[in-house]
């Protein structure tokens, strides 16, 4: 038997930074200010507070739209990347990673400089005559701008896993398909896509999960709050209610775990088919 000693520091780390905070959130979610057990917080989220319910559905909607858009954009990019020479592939890989070296709040603030009134976009559109002087683009402070921000921010998390799986598909499989009379479209549909499903699944999870709990992006580019901002609101300040904030996080966590479980099911089923 292998020694388990090397795992001990890791276990301590996990206990301090993952398990204990999680227990604190769960305890908070099911207690009231006096510390007594209660289901009021959850009841309020699901039945009593139209703001929270609306906010949750809106966050879900924006996360779903952003995730689908990411997939639509990322898949062709991953395919094109996988077909390049290795040196070009490495360069593209590097370029996609590059923005992620910067803090995401900073990157969203640069979008602000692009979108804001008299910002870079306005100057460009006025230059080519699409906007008259004094007019501003209709994008800033809308849901569309928020979706744009989320897609921009999480696109690499979709491209990279898909690229990794697509790049591993041997050229001979494409050739075999074409030899046997498949159109290029059918090669893509019947050979490449099924083999890339694991990458697609992990891409979907890696985009949907953070998009669902995203914060700052919506306040900065859309002016309105999503679930993440609401948790923040209830956790800080006088009159704040960390118990409600914790309950909101628990609900969010539950839905995220559910979605991951669902996607993983697809993943496994496909493995069986391929095997």
């Amino acid at each position: 038997m292998k020694s388990k000693k090397p795992l001990i520091p890791y276990a301590i780390w996990m206990a301090i930074f993952v398990v204990i905070p999680l227990i604190m959130i769960i305890v908070n979610a099911f207690t009231d200010k006096s510390g007594a057990f209660t289901l009021d917080n959850l009841e309020r989220i699901f039945f009593k507070d139209p703001t929270l319910r609306y906010n949750f559905l809106n966050s879900l909607k924006i996360a779903l739209i952003s995730t689908v858009l990411c997939l639509v954009l990322a898949y062709p990019i991953a395919l094109i990347m996988a077909r390049q020479k290795p040196s070009v592939q490495r360069l593209l890989h590097f370029l996609i990673m590059l923005p992620m070296w910067m803090n995401f709040v900073l990157r969203i603030c640069s979008w602000l400089l692009v979108l804001q009134p008299d910002g870079i976009l306005d100057v460009m559109l006025r230059g080519v005559g699409l906007l008259s002087p004094g007019q501003s683009n209709p994008l800033y402070m809308t849901e569309t701008a928020v979706v744009l921000g989320i897609v921009y921010n999480y696109l690499p998390f979709m491209i990279l896993p898909i690229y990794t799986t697509v790049a591993k598909i041997p050229r001979s499989l494409y050739e075999a398909g074409e030899d046997l009379g498949c159109s290029r479209w059918n090669v893509l549909k019947k050979i490449v896509f099924p083999l890339s499903v694991p990458g697609v699944i992990s891409g979907l999870t890696m985009v949907f999960v953070p998009a669902m709990s995203s914060f700052v992006i919506s306040m900065k580019l859309g002016g309105f709050a999503l679930m993440g901002d609401i948790i923040d609101n209830y956790y800080k300040g006088t009159g704040g209610d960390p118990h409600l904030g914790a309950a909101v996080s628990i609900v969010l966590m539950f839905f995220i775990i559910l979605s991951i479980a669902l996607m993983n099911r697809f993943d496994k089923d496909d493995d069986v088919v391929l095997a």
Binding site: A225, D229, N233, T238, G239
Partner: peptide, 22 residues
């Protein structure tokens, strides 16, 4: 300094204001 209920009311309305700011 405001009473606890007033602060809590403002906090709830604040969540509403930020959610509806469209």
């Amino acid at each position: 300094d405001l009473p606890e209920e007033t602060n809590a009311l403002m906090r709830d309305l604040w969540a509403e204001i930020l959610t509806d700011n469209k």
